[in-house]
Amino acid sequence: MSPISLDVAHMFAGGLVLVSFMMLYQDRLPPLINALSLHSLLLGLSVAWQAHIQNAPELYVTAVLAVGLKCILIPMALRRMVVRMGLQREIEVVIGTGITMLIGIGLVALSMDLMLRVTAGSSALVREDVALSLSVVLLGLLMMVTRRNAVSQVIGFMSLENGLILAGTGARGMPLVVEISVAFSVLIAFIVIGIFLFRIRERFDTVDVRALDVMRGEQS
């Protein structure tokens, strides 16, 4: 494998981690949705590059799905939803931005150390790819736990899924079944969430999940 193909793949995967960090500190919804678009665009480019260097044309389908669906269509729908619900205000963050970023850095260091150590038998390309994708997954998780707003939790979930696709395409020759299913599952997930959001909106006029936390298990 030529060094340039490794470098480009590395650049895209690293870019995804960077955008994941950007998402961590966006405290308003519209820029957060833009960051999601950028995240998905980078994923699409990364997958397309993998398709090119692995000689796996079927991966282009995944790339097109990532760009078409997650970079354009879903952010468009989310933007419309945000405007219609009047949610352009600040979103609440449970812990401060600084601490969140520090935890994020720790998670990236952890995933690098762990994955580079256990994948010693694989090629450099696969190792970098899996290590960076675990970082993206963990940053997505971090975002989901630090946000209280239903829309930003959904965005965190989608960035997590992007990390999974990055890992799936980095694993050479992984059967297409999985890629399609992941893309498909994101679609299903989106529909599910969409329905939920609208139901929540219908009932409570808010998408802040704290409004749903009243029950908190039960009082005996």
Partner: peptide
Amino acid sequence: HAALEAAWKYFILGSVGIGLALFGTI
């Protein structure tokens, strides 16, 4: 109200579980 909270919680925790399981599968 309660059913929506339950479904949302189930969905969020379930998707995190799903994500981790897929990473393990990969």
